[in-house]
Design a protein around this nucleic acid. Sequence first.
DNA 1: TTAACTTTCCGAACATGTTCCGAAAGTAGC
DNA 2: GCTACTTTCGGAACATGTTCGGAAAGTTAA
Lengths: 240, 240
Amino acid sequence: MSRAPAPHGRTGRPPLTSRAQILVAARGLIDQDGWEKLTIRRLAAELGIGATTLYHHIRNKDDLLLLLLNHHIEQIERPPLPADPRERVVTAALAMRDALQAWPWAAEVLSADGFVGLLDEPAMWMVEAIVSGAGDHGCTPEQSVDLFRGVWYLTVGEVLVRARSARRQDEGRPFAHRDDLDPAQVPHLAAIGVRWAPLAARDVYPRTLGTLVDGLLAGAGGGGGGSADRRWSDSGVTAD
Amino acid sequence: MSRAPAPHGRTGRPPLTSRAQILVAARGLIDQDGWEKLTIRRLAAELGIGATTLYHHIRNKDDLLLLLLNHHIEQIERPPLPADPRERVVTAALAMRDALQAWPWAAEVLSADGFVGLLDEPAMWMVEAIVSGAGDHGCTPEQSVDLFRGVWYLTVGEVLVRARSARRQDEGRPFAHRDDLDPAQVPHLAAIGVRWAPLAARDVYPRTLGTLVDGLLAGAGGGGGGSADRRWSDSGVTAD
DNA sequence: TTAACTTTCCGAACATGTTCCGAAAGTAGC
DNA sequence: GCTACTTTCGGAACATGTTCGGAAAGTTAA
């Protein structure tokens, strides 16, 4: 049942399965039956190997999902990055959001494994684009990191909440979905009442993102003047 | 082994356990051994009942955590809500953040069960405060919901990401924690390098929140004039 | 007392992710 | 060919959340 006859001076039992095969099979199962049906034992059966064998190629299931996510992000077409710093930040953030949102399982990995800091280099261009946009606008490194974090938190929150809400019956029913709200206690919520659901279903991420970015950029580079880029030049990064 | 001899005209076998007892015991276990150690079987053992019996008092484990969260939020002291709309929004948002952040398990429930829309009335004052602040500032109901959603996404993202990051070795190591970043590919990230970690460890939520709220309020009520509150008055809500 | 009926309790069982430990299958040196 | 040695494979087992079917323990009606 062996496949490759030991490529080189490799010793030990030759592998029956490769990590790449596992990823392909996992991807196939997800595309076919949905990601909820992806289970370790099922994946192993699909590959014709024992369940526990998988654990010699992946650390655990979260790790598997993370590998799939990285693979998915790698294959995203990079949008052309605008020269204008503000537009670059917004463009990259939207790409981040779309990459995660198009992925029903992203929420699992996002929440299950921290996710941040676990992405490979191929995903870094989004971060670099945002940080560089901030820097080119005049932000200090500190302010640039703050900007990225703000954008990142907003994005993660949006993707997670909406992904979870969508799985329930009614799309995005945050609060006040029911009409039993006491107008004396929560007058505004009661006034909105059932209108909340359709309102919350709209996609306002681009607008909210733009507002946040504008505010953070204005509070950083705009008023301060040209002294900010000094700290970047310490490391050889110059605004081009 | 019975406890109460059938309070009223109740029929059937008298309950050995009440939901309240379960919540108290769960709370005790969490306070004692940490919330990771809270398991259905352990909780049942602590109560001296069978594991499956719990499922006649709670829907599932997520439901249990949700009940605990609601109970926790109920006991939060409500901060005095400022009359100024903008300050009211910020105050309520900070209260929301603190309530979730002080709770190591919040992230679990947040991500595990959607969470939004599952809170009881006692938590609604935070939402009402934010929506009312927006309304009093001149936002339409639509704009008010958008404002709340922006704030909510930012808050959820911040709490989730930071909770997850904290569990790992190094606090908040989003990206660029390692120094093997290629300066040719990601110059700004490489320039920041290991400085990212301490920068990302700072709490910038209040500042980011303030910026977002200011931007959303300015984009809604500020320029439009006084026509916005017409839609609120349809439902009998007047700015006081 | 007996016979329904109702509600609560719980042991057995299932699916899942994961760990342990030994068997299997190669290569390298003799 | 034989003996190490190394690496992969996978069955058994465990903890966990959860479901199922029926036993247990009451109340009400006859």
